[in-house]
Design a binder for these strands. Structure first.
Lengths: 349, 349
DNA sequence: TAGCCTGTCTAAACCGGTTCAGTGTGGACC
DNA sequence: GGTCCACACTGAACCGGTTTAGACAGGCTA
């Protein structure tokens, strides 16, 4: 008996490179060549193959291609943060939106990992590589002597650092210099007449945390002011609030506070209100990031505007270029700049 | 600086299933069986194979496995939002942290896409499926008659909806009911003595936007109050601020405003300050989400606490169960509950 | 006319797993 | 002692691409 098995009519038989080749009357290999714009295919044959491929609606299987090329066509981002801090930080959503705007048209995907601590973070990089999930990664939140750099170098995984690391690095850096913004904040306050300016800093294990802190100290010296009081935090709003209370309940409190990020500045604003300290009359406040909400608190926040989406785009482009060419140049984006709003004013007589 | 990636100097000969098989003196197939806990392997053989695999440090290649099993061992999340709104919304970072806490131990990855509009969103789902990037997806920000549901059903991609969709859906829903929180907000305000309560709603094209709005209307009726004024927004802080101005500059402004999310409520707080309307003395305010910063603005915000991390965990578990068993039950998480803080008080006599 | 490229194309190996038909062995049963 | 079966295991096909060695035709040179 001849068994005529009827296919389940629903699925129109998967189109593979084999099918395209047969239909175009050539071999698999040639279809592959034509698709990848490789030399050695007669022009009219190439056209015919691509025409057939189009007719059949063939898209090469990413999985099969991955296996033979040993690449995944995806990039990775690992974020090691306390979920609370992460949630109030608007940097990553914007950064990711920027990254996506570059990756999507290239047919690449972004693999995201959010991990609780630095140890898990290293493990995550290891397994991303071991599983071949990604062809390259973004390195954010650089730390002093960042262990991720040697690790990735050892693993041979292309990477781009967000900002310049403090040690040697084989990877291109895409940088938004945050120093000028902090310096401008202090200069702005000094010009207004403030002499006791304090700083609520981020974590000094993070490079940008300590860099902003150093910039603050330098700017205060530069302005010929007495050394500014600095309190280190973990970037969380809770810590920002606490630090503000400590600063304002001293005998001679500062007349201005420079915060290392906007959420802490907003929390500081709240604490000032609570303590009956009027902003900006009795206390001037500056933030960092220029998140959307800064414009709408009262008084609107003077802050430093970075451009995380642009940063994301530049980082993605650089990483793709690195993977394509084996090398890529560092990119220096326009420095973050001060945006003056209502939360800063001359100190009260 | 121009940086090139240097490959790791030592290539310790890649360990494949072939190598393990040879070393253990069995065939590839048997190694595969042993690894996947399939029956038909003698107990001591299984032990020996696993032992050898461990010695050699063999990890099966995800890529090869993907090709033969036609699965990617990754899940997808597509977020269609204006980057500004996304940045100020703390939901996703927390949600993702929750999702990751389930996926990571399972060796699954999360593929994230951030797209600008609903049209691109559908295309993105199509290409995630076409490329076989993911085995399942999370559906957030449900809309009325959401086109993603039939699309994904047609594509045969497993999915989990965050909340119950309004139409028929073949997918399990993981829900945090937001209605009780809104009702509790209104009831709380009514109990305090407010009679003119307004609502700054989110986009009514989003299911949760219109559901919160309906809950608000119902609660106002329930409390025997005159119909509350409602202004629809796009969830952005700018819109929240504008809406607040419109409400407060009327002849008889409301004495309380219920906001559909926290960022808008905080912007509303700012606007009230700007207009010289004291909170909570002259105006009570409630938010929704209980983001970290609520506690630290002044006055601290009365809001509704959802638990996005828990939600993420539940959604991830459900999606994995769905993929494993072919079906999964709906999950109803504890309803979001009202957290009373300083931004609500009896209306000024 | 032979010899040698050059350009086009094919066949087959390869990536590294999974899966399935089938082989061989030993014990239970009759 | 022969039959049957369960179990353990092998070999090869398969997933769907990429890549390489080599076949073949035609034009050019010597």
């Amino acid at each position: 008996m001849n068994t005529a098995v009827s296919k389940p009519a629903t699925h129109p038989a998967k189109v593979t490179i084999e099918v395209v080749a047969k239909r175009a009357g050539v071999s698999k290999g040639l279809v592959s060549f034509a698709l990848n714009n490789r030399p050695g295919v007669a022009p009219e044959t190439r056209v015919r193959i691509l025409q057939v491929a189009k007719e059949l609606g063939w898209k090469p299987s990413l999985r099969a291609r991955s296996l033979s090329t040993q690449r995944s066509y995806a990039l990775g981002l690992v974020i090691a943060r306390n979920p609370d801090v992460l949630a109030s930080d608007p940097f990553f959503p914007s950064f990711i939106a920027g990254v996506e705007s570059i990756l999507a048209p290239e047919g690449r995907a972004l693999v995201l990992s959010v991990v609780p601590d630095a140890e898990t973070e290293l493990k995550t990089y290891r397994s991303l590589v071991a599983d071949g999930r990604v062809d390259g990664v973004f390195l954010s939140d650089l730390r002093h002597g960042d262990p991720r750099i040697p690790l990735l170098a050892e693993l041979g995984l292309p990477a781009v650092t967000l900002g310049r690391p403090d040690g040697a690095s084989p990877f291109p850096a895409v940088t938004v210099d945050d120093t000028p913004g902090v310096i401008a904040s202090v200069a702005h306050l000094a010009t207004l007449g403030h002499r006791r300016i304090a700083h609520v800093a981020g974590s000094s294990t993070l490079l940008h945390g300590s860099r902003r802190r150093a910039a603050f100290a330098a700017a205060v010296r530069e302005a010929g002011l007495p050394e500014g009081q600095t309190i280190e935090t973990d970037f969380s709003v809770a810590a920002g609030s606490d630090a503000t209370r400590r600063l304002l309940t001293q005998e001679t409190p500062p007349t201005a506070i420079v915060y290392a990020n906007d959420p802490m500045a907003i929390a500081g604003l709240g604490m000032a209100h609570e303590l009956g300290v009027r902003v900006p009359d009795e206390l001037s406040i500056t933030g960092y990031d220029d998140i959307d909400i800064c414009r709408y608190v009262y008084p609107p926040l003077t802050t430093v505007s970075a451009a995380p989406m642009v940063w994301g785009r530049a980082a993605a482009s650089t990483l793709l270029a690195l993977m394509e060419n084996g090398s890529a140049d560092d990119v220096d984006l326009p420095a973050a700049r001060l945006v003056i709003r209502g939360s800063t004013a001359p100190p009260r007589g």
